[in-house]
Amino acid sequence: MAGHGGDVIAELTADHREVDEFFEQIEQINPGSQERKQVLDQLTIELVRHAVAEEEYLYPAVREHLENGDALADKELADHARVEQLLKDLQSTKADDLEFTELLVNLKMEVFAHVRDEEDNLFVQLREACHPFVLESLGQKVRHAKKTAPTRPHPSAPDSPPANKLLAPGLGLVDRARDFVTGRGQ
């Protein structure tokens, strides 16, 4: 999920399609296979980076530009919290454990519902409410945020500014160092 280019809506929609592809890959791998866990690691990295970028830039813009922005942003943050907890639970579950498959199904349902809601509601409202320049600027900020974001779920980390902007780069550096040492996501 490197930068895709375009405004914030194009950028995040492209991320969503990548996530769809990761789920398709996982579903083609035999249940219980360690390979499923490896692809899940890649999916986790991408989902966490995506979520951090949304929390740093998209949701503050939603609060600022949309009439019911606070409620919308709060709902999206609650979605992220559920996804992050599922990712954390999956990290500590073995691929051949029956609970792994159950958690994976729950993760897919949560992510797909969140994506549909963003694409069908939130993005439509943002496109109507924001000048194209604002959306383009947000796209650039989101791309930058994904480069420095953590790669592991941190469900107890703050998800609202300014604390999330202060902590995300530090957590990201620690996570990327750990990933390099362990080879995770390679």
Rank of each mutant, 00 (worst) to 15 (best):
151 T>S: 09
54 E>A: 03
76 E>T: 08
14 A>N: 09
37 K>W: 14
118 E>V: 03
58 L>W: 07
154 H>I: 01
80 H>S: 03
85 Q>N: 12
91 Q>S: 06
72 L>Q: 04
168 A>C: 14
32 G>C: 04
162 P>R: 03
101 T>Q: 08
92 S>F: 08
31 P>W: 01
141 K>Q: 14
22 F>T: 05
147 K>Q: 14
13 T>S: 13
172 G>T: 11
82 R>Y: 12
75 K>H: 15
173 L>G: 14
111 V>K: 01
36 R>P: 12
150 P>H: 04
151 T>H: 05
69 G>Y: 03
93 T>L: 11
50 H>S: 06
40 L>S: 08
60 P>N: 12
46 E>K: 09
150 P>C: 04
171 L>A: 03
162 P>D: 11
88 K>M: 02
164 N>I: 06
101 T>R: 02
47 L>G: 02
109 M>F: 14
141 K>Y: 07
161 P>E: 13
127 R>Q: 10
93 T>G: 09
24 E>F: 15
92 S>W: 06
165 K>W: 08
71 A>D: 11
100 F>G: 03
88 K>H: 04
123 F>V: 05
128 E>N: 09
35 E>N: 10
162 P>F: 04
103 L>G: 05
18 E>Y: 10
136 E>P: 05
81 A>F: 09
128 E>H: 11
155 P>H: 00
44 T>L: 00
24 E>C: 15
37 K>H: 13
186 Q>D: 13
60 P>C: 07
136 E>K: 06
57 Y>F: 15
175 D>W: 02
63 R>M: 13
93 T>H: 03
13 T>E: 09
24 E>K: 15
145 A>L: 02
142 V>T: 09
145 A>V: 10
33 S>P: 07
36 R>W: 09
59 Y>T: 06
100 F>I: 09
14 A>E: 06
